[in-house]
């Protein structure tokens, strides 16, 4: 009986491996191989147009650490990530609390709030460039009408406007993710907790800090880690809004990799940037993965 069971188990194991085989093959071909290839390339100097390379050892890495471009990009990446993430969390929690109430046409309101998250970054950037337009943009018109500014403002071409604009557009595009996640959690907080707090004489603000926020803690930690990882590697939005400019003032690490590989034509150096960027992200990624594991994930 027992041998038969192990036979069946063995057959199941084989079937299981057969089912995962296509995934493993694709993973090896398009992810694992390129990943090691990127590390390998970072020890070379590769001229993009001819794709001819020569071994340079660790010199890409030492150059990277010595020149200002890497540190500048790292600083910009951190400013963008922290600024945008902060706004996303504040806006996300605030609007989730509002949408949690019983407002008119709630599902329509929810759809409208969700929409920016799902549209293409290209669409978001085009619309915002039109809103930011210096001559005919509605934002300049409104700001001048209210009297905040006297002359049209250059939103994307000067500092610190460019960084602030990028952070704001990023917050607008990605905060709905926080809304959805927080909203789902809010709906599962037992009503009895609020009633108990009410009996104890807690006002709305105290109820938020004593009941809501502690209940949201776990989900917020997950959201912050995920969004930090995603914001850190954001390419499309910043590249399309400012292209890293003015000068290199909004150039983040992903933009630096792209520029090095396809504008400055050194794929080896670009790979070194990419590898270092990945190492920095690895810290976040491992923390997130570990946490997921503890929650009975993986």
């Amino acid at each position: 009986m027992s041998t038969q069971k192990t036979l069946l188990e063995r057959r199941y194991a084989t079937l299981g491996m057969a089912l995962i085989a296509p995934t493993v093959l694709i993973f090896c071909a398009v992810i694992v191989y390129p990943l090691f290839s990127a590390i390998y390339l970072s020890f070379y100097s590769v001229f993009t147009p001819t794709l001819e390379g020569e071994w340079v050892g660790l010199s890409n890495y030492s150059e990277l650490l010595q020149t200002g471009r890497f540190w500048n990009a790292l600083g910009n990446t951190l400013i963008w990530t922290i600024g945008s993430l902060f706004l996303q969390i504040i806006l996300g929690i605030g609007i989730a609390l509002v949408l949690h109430q019983n407002i008119w046409f709630r599902s329509l309101a929810r759809s409208l709030i969700l929409f920016p998250y799902f549209i293409s970054t290209v669409v978001a950037v085009l619309v915002w460039k039109w809103l930011f337009n210096d001559l005919y943009g509605i934002l300049n018109h409104l700001l001048m009408k209210v009297g905040i500014i006297e002359f049209p403002m250059d939103f994307l071409g000067t500092m610190p406007n460019a960084m602030i604009s990028v952070i704001l557009v990023g917050a607008w595009k990605y905060f709905p993710f926080v809304v959805i996640a927080v909203l789902a959690r809010l709906q599962s907080i037992p009503e009895s907790l609020y009633e108990a707090a009410k009996i104890d004489g807690a006002g709305p603000v105290a109820r938020f800090f004593d009941v809501t926020l502690p209940q949201l803690r776990d989900v917020l930690v997950v959201i912050i880690m995920l969004r930090a990882i995603w914001d850190f590697k954001e390419f499309d939005m910043i590249y399309l809004l400012t292209g890293g400019g003015p000068l290199d003032d909004t150039q983040t690490l992903p933009l630096l990799v792209y520029q090095e590989a396809f504008a400055l034509n050194d794929m080896g150096m670009a790979s070194a940037y990419a590898v270092v960027m990945m190492l920095i992200m690895l810290v976040f990624m491992l923390v997130y993965i570990r946490r997921t594991k503890d929650d009975g994930g993986v």
Partner: peptide, 10 residues
């Protein structure tokens, strides 16, 4: 969680 820019060159 891996960024696309790492894979893009290879």
């Amino acid at each position: 969680l891996l960024p696309s820019v790492v894979l893009i060159i290879p």
